[in-house]
Design a protein around this nucleic acid. Structure first.
Ligand SMILES: Nc1nc2c(ncn2[C@H]2C[C@H](O)[C@@H](COP(=O)(O)OP(=O)(O)OP(=O)(O)O)O2)c(=O)[nH]1
Ligand SMILES: [Mg+2]
Ligand SMILES: [Mg+2]
Ligand SMILES: [Zn+2]
Length: 561
DNA sequence: GCCGTTTTCGGCCCGACTGTTTTCAGTCG
């Protein structure tokens, strides 16, 4: 019973109660579910320690239910509710514009319980006759059912860069467009995003929105008004655009960046101070006392500024009250995991060096695959020597590293007498993901014990949306990392982002130092460093925790330590 | 159902857009 499963049950209870028209309880269950889904502690540990009621929005009643769920694997209260209702709420509420009230109405009037029966009723024209419904409503439902089947729910953050560029170019081309900001979860650097949220300022919002809605990649409109417009692009990506006056830019940015629960928490603070916070500003009565920029909004609430990456209502507001938010890592001076023609990279050594110089780095490291034939294009002895010569004649701090596979027994696939010729060795797991936590941990520890291994790449092996990362015995991993001065990597490539935020947070709390690398297989991918830094910031990492924030000599000293 | 140095009872974020209404409920961000 992990956090996700507990949260799902609480969410499902909220859905069922909502359908029964129960007041307020659904909100309570949802808030508790939210806390549990996002907290970094394991719910089982919290239960063992008897601290369930310390979780925000978990009181005695919900705590009892969680305890039962953990102890017995099921929950009688939930089963009872489920038995009473025949409606597949999860399926139906995925339909755009279909919420609890309508679902209940449809069930009461037409016994609609799932997508199939909804579709049938709509096609037979039965829905238009219901009270409060009409022809348009029925048509919209049919359309929403049609599109629900083909739209993806979330996108890997790094995969929408081109769409964002195109949207920005289109929107800012219009003279009515002022300040432009990508807000929402994208700005918070979450690994996946549900949609793209864009904030633009304008003195002529209607004119600007007309222009925005003429974007050629739009497939269909979802809503349009005088302050916002929403649509779906031909590739299935949802876009929400909000237009406000520039005097509200800060408060609108705060609102539209979220997260939702962070917003609600801030608005409660405002209430307590006798103020009101909305996207239009922070108000005392009719008077706007902040809103032009985000800093003024936080200051007006008596809070230290909170970076977007931390705005998840996971303790950051409490820290900000006490001015305890640290200065987060913002920039690195080098990148030492990347691949070239020597293994499976798409660019030459020279091209990668040129690109790293353009990134503004002071140093870099090339880490082509070496040591095993299992990974495509691993270098042999001659190639390693040839690459060394090529690297050594450069007028730039270029290190020669290697990425070496850890085999299923924990042995490196290259011998020490070959490893010793590299400036540093990166070890990583590319197979045997299904071993036990113990076995996987042992493999990682064994690699860290090797004197030439300086970095463990993508430590959990996850591939976002495709493969869950494996779990490790983190305490032992962190301890060995410290003992051997082996750095755990924050791999910045879009599908990995591994270590992820909660592991980063745990690692730095344990006293580990980390390194952010892109694992670029071409020059373009070097730019995903930004996302790696974003993930590090989500994990509260500061400069002192990230070794490649150092200039060359101190970095080298740490790498060789 | 949860929560609280102005409350242990009575609140629970605040606003835009849509479709169906002749004044607003539902859904969404
Ligand atoms: N105050 C308030 N703000 C909300 C609410 N729902 C959404 N927002 C704000 C905060 C969100 O970050 C922002 C954009 O909404 P989205 O639904 O796109 O969520 P977000 O981008 O955070 O996550 P996503 O990856 O899109 O699922 O709008 C709400 O119920 N109340
Ligand atoms: Mg969003
Ligand atoms: Mg959105
Ligand atoms: Zn590779």
């Amino acid at each position: 019973m992990d956090n996700t499963r507990v949260a799902r049950v609480l969410e499902a209870i909220a859905d069922l109660l909502e359908l029964e028209d129960v007041q307020w309880k659904p909100r309570a269950y949802r808030a508790a579910a939210q806390s549990i889904a996002f907290m970094s502690e394991d719910i089982n540990d919290v239960y063992q320690k008897g601290l369930l009621e310390d979780i925000p929005h978990v009181g005695s009643s919900i705590a009892k239910k969680i305890a039962e769920l953990i102890k017995t694997g099921s929950l009688r209260y939930y089963e009872r509710l489920k038995k009473k209702s025949k409606v597949n709420i999860e399926e139906l509420s995925r339909i755009e514009g279909l919420g609890p009230k309508t679902i209940k109405h449809l069930y009461d009037a037409l016994h609609i319980t799932n997508l199939a029966s909804l579709k049938k009723a709509a096609e037979e024209g039965k829905i238009r006759n219901l009270e409060g419904m009409g022809k348009k409503r029925e048509k919209n439902l049919l359309e929403a059912i049609h599109f629900a089947q083909k739209t993806k729910d979330r996108h890997v953050r790094g995969h929408v860069v081109r769409d964002i560029d195109a949207l920005k170019t289109h929107i800012t081309r219009n003279p009515a467009a002022g300040l432009f900001l990508i807000a929402g979860s994208y700005r918070r650097y979450t690994e996946t995003i549900g949609d793209i949220d864009i904030l633009v300022t304008s003195t002529q919002p209607k004119k600007l929105i007309t222009h925005i809605n003429a974007f050629e990649r739009i497939e269909r409109m979802l809503a349009k008004g005088s302050t916002k417009t929403s649509f779906v692009l031909k590739n299935g990506l949802h876009v929400d655009v909000r237009v406000v006056d520039k005097n509200s830019f800060g408060s609108a940015a705060q609102y539209f960046t979220g997260s939702k629960y962070h917003n609600i928490a801030l608005r409660k603070i405002a209430q307590k101070k006798g103020l009101k916070l909305s996207e239009y500003g922070l108000f005392r009565g009719e008077k706007r006392i902040a809103g032009k920029n985000e800093k003024s909004v936080y200051a007006g609430l008596g809070l230290q500024y909170i970076s977007p990456e931390l705005r998840e209502n996971q303790g950051e507001i409490e820290l900000a009250k006490n001015k305890k938010i640290p200065t987060l890592v913002a920039k690195v001076h080098g990148d030492v995991q990347m691949h070239t023609h020597y293994s499976d990279g798409a660019n030459s050594v020279g091209e990668m060096i040129h690109a790293c110089k353009k990134m503004g780095y002071a140093y870099m490291g090339i880490s082509d695959h070496a040591g095993t034939l299992k990974i495509a294009g691993a270098m042999n002895k001659q190639q390693i020597a040839k690459q060394r010569k090529e690297i050594d004649k450069q007028d730039f701090h270029v290190l020669q590293g290697a990425e070496v596979d850890i085999d299923s027994k924990g042995k490196l696939t290259l011998k020490n007498d070959a490893l010793k010729d590299f400036d540093y060795v990166i070890a990583s797991i590319h197979s045997g993901f299904h071993q036990t936590k113990q076995q996987l941990t042992t493999r990682i520890l064994a690699a860290m014990q090797n004197e030439y291994v300086r970095i463990i790449a993508h430590p959990t092996g996850r591939v976002i949306g495709k493969r869950e990362g494996y779990t490790l015995d983190w305490e032992r991993v962190f301890n060995t990392s410290k003992e051997t001065n082996t750095y755990l990597e924050i791999n910045a490539s879009p599908e990995r982002l591994d270590l992820r935020d909660e592991h980063i947070h745990a690692a730095i709390n344990a006293g580990c130092k980390l390194i952010i690398n892109t694992d670029a297989h071409n020059t373009d991918s070097l730019h995903c460093m930004d996302a790696g830094i974003g993930m590090a910031r989500r994990g509260y990492a500061q400069d002192k925790h990230i070794i490649n924030t150092k200039s060359y000599m101190p970095f080298l000293k740490l790498l060789k330590a």
